[in-house]
Design a protein around this nucleic acid. Structure first.
Lengths: 261, 261
DNA sequence: AGACTAAGTTTCAAATAGTGAAACCAAACG
DNA sequence: CGTTTGGTTTCACTATTTGAAACTTAGTCT
């Protein structure tokens, strides 16, 4: 079947189409989608109609192109505020950025990929939407590996199945086996490295954010360059990063229960 | 036939549930949703399962609560970048904020409501996600009326049907008739006022952002308080605001066609 | 013009997927 | 330990979705 996995029911297909439109990154015509998707013409057409009618897509009548609808922005606002760690973690990220002077990433797992929900760039000021929301591979980023390492077996398996290993740099762990060994090491060590595995010259130290029950909620990382520092020096910060991760986890957990009125 | 309108098909229902979860603003239990929704138990259950499986919701296994999933954040990132005016308008908003020293709003229409996609607050720096994504009523805000005024008849009708008129302040136009008359005046004048119709003491001057073909793409407003200025003084800025709206429209239109490779 | 082609929209019988009342299970409660 | 509350599963019934194919437009070519 298609590149996408198991689409359960109509809803799954509809969301799949949404992703597809999102993937293009520009308004798309019906036919653009038709070649990409492996749904028959009529089916795709109806899905698009439904989504458009629902405000998840917009059809520009002038050009006959579909784009993601603003209803998504509204939903995302709520998602970001209520479900991501970002609003809670915000002050902690500030603190960490200030103390380390490096770039800070806050990420969560999304369908086997890393989703950055917040970021502090040492240099320039905060630019949320433009920065957050980006996705990256899990198997070759610090935050990705930190989360993978603490996933329960089935979830890990599901995540691994979604990785498309690719050797970004000479240091990339581009096989399932190498990655599994590394995850074991991460669990021993308590934090993950990114030793130029994704981009040359970029290194980072990442720790998972775990709930009291051990569930992976996200990950936090301090990123730098080989020009500026070394893995060892970054590692020296690990205890502090871990401490902040724990604080975020604690607050996230207590915060999750405004206990219905 | 619940409070929500016409839910077409399973997809509509699923999205309806999503909205519902978003509406709670906190993680919700199955039973919370059950009383709110008028779907039978089993149906709601299945919808939740599907959405969870799809990553649009997350089920916290510890507490048995559902929250919006991070997949939405990813989608929204794309939506914001590709479909909203925000990324294009950004530099213009900065310019306008600098020139006026007032609060600037950029909004789009979403299902008869106003959705703020970006904002410049005179005082504090940009905080995207936390600011953007908010919704407000259309009939009693400057941006809302500016957009309504230029909507084609059917769309206007649909939007009006979704307004739930409520007298927020003594100045609110809380009837269909009063609003229609005002929209006529806005078309004549070329821009909309908000004369303390939503919040006491808050006034604004808003202009629509129209495509070359006359389609409403969004609206732009300069907001202030009666303590600081008057409607007349704000009105003096209208030409400039209109000019910037035109620039945004022009750029948005040319930008929409990176013309497929 | 008229004959092709490409892009989008509609049809309709067959099949699939969704429905929901009711039964079931498992904690929490008194 | 019987009962309630909150969540999950079943299963016959049905409505929705499906998709090949026919049909419209709107361009293009000769």
């Amino acid at each position: 079947m298609g590149a996408e996995g198991h689409a359960d029911g109509t809803v799954g297909k509809a969301l799949d189409v949404l992703d597809m439109v999102a993937g293009f990154g520009r308004p798309v015509r019906f036919s653009d989608l038709l070649v990409e998707a492996d749904y028959p013409k009529a089916t795709l057409y109806r899905l698009l109609q439904t989504l458009t009618h629902q405000g998840m897509l917009t059809l520009d009548p002038d050009t006959g192109t579909y784009a993601l609808g603003v209803r998504l922005v509204r939903l995302a606002h709520a998602a970001w505020a209520q479900s991501s760690l970002a609003p809670i973690a915000r002050p902690y990220l500030d603190e960490l950025a200030r103390k380390t002077g490096e770039t800070i990433h806050l990420a969560q797992m999304d369908q086997g990929q890393v989703l950055y929900v917040d970021k502090r760039n040492a240099a320039r000021p905060v630019e949320m939407f433009a920065q957050a929301g980006k996705v990256g591979p899990a198997y070759c980023t610090g935050v990705g590996k930190a989360m993978l390492a603490y996933l329960p077996p089935e979830a890990l398996e599901a995540a691994l199945a979604r990785q498309s290993f690719h050797r970004h740099t000479p240091h990339t762990l581009a096989s399932r086996e190498a990655l599994l060994a590394e995850l074991e090491a991460i669990r021993k060590r308590g934090h993950a490295w990114d030793a130029e595995e994704h981009e040359a010259g970029i290194i980072c130290c990442a720790v998972p954010i775990l709930s009291r029950s051990g569930r992976v909620m996200g990950a936090l990382s301090v990123t730098s360059t080989t020009a500026r520092t070394t893995l060892e020096a970054l590692g020296a910060q690990a205890p502090m990063v871990k401490d902040i991760a724990a604080k975020i986890a604690a607050e996230a957990e207590s915060w999750r229960f405004p206990e219905q009125v």
